[in-house]
Amino acid sequence: MTNKKTPDDKNKRDFLQVSTYALGAVGAASFVWPLINQMNPAADTLALASTEVDLEQLEEGQAITVTWRGKPVFIRHRTKEEIASAKDQLLDGLRDPQTDDERVQNEKYIVLVGVCTHLGCVPLGQKSGDVKGEYGGWFCPCHGSHYDHSGRIRKGPAPTNLEIPQYSFLSDTLIKIG
């Protein structure tokens, strides 16, 4: 051990140390990732992420609620009056301005995620006897949010319109949500 430590040795030693720590950090992170990722939705949960609904039996004025990703989805077959009232609404004064056309693919059917945008309750208005609120759409009993025939927020604490899920018409009366 007669050789002196030169600055070169020190640089080599630093490099070895830094690269060892870096490799150790990568190894630790790659072990930690599976521990975290196991809490994300599993393959079978993701496989249930779309739902098909046949609307043939749904008469004008009727509504059905289906489950999609564990949440209720509202589908209402709107009457001509309801469509007209939703279309005629001026955007001025709406909290979350959207035209009815932006919110439907086929104006007969409105498809909404049935979860109030305030704090997550399920609004009333799907059953014939339900309170539908001052605008004839849906009414959330938890904190009094009123939604219109297009599911837009009109009155109450909710900040935004009822969410529209991703969906597509597979035929005239068959839709696939998700």
Partner: peptide
């Protein structure tokens, strides 16, 4: 990810092996 019930325990372990993210590894 495990269910401690005689009707679900075996299947929940198989679900860990097949469906849970990195479940086979864990």
């Amino acid at each position: 990810n495990y269910t401690a019930h005689i009707d679900y325990a075996f299947d929940s372990v198989e679900r860990i092996m097949r469906d849970v993210n990195h479940g086979w590894l864990l």
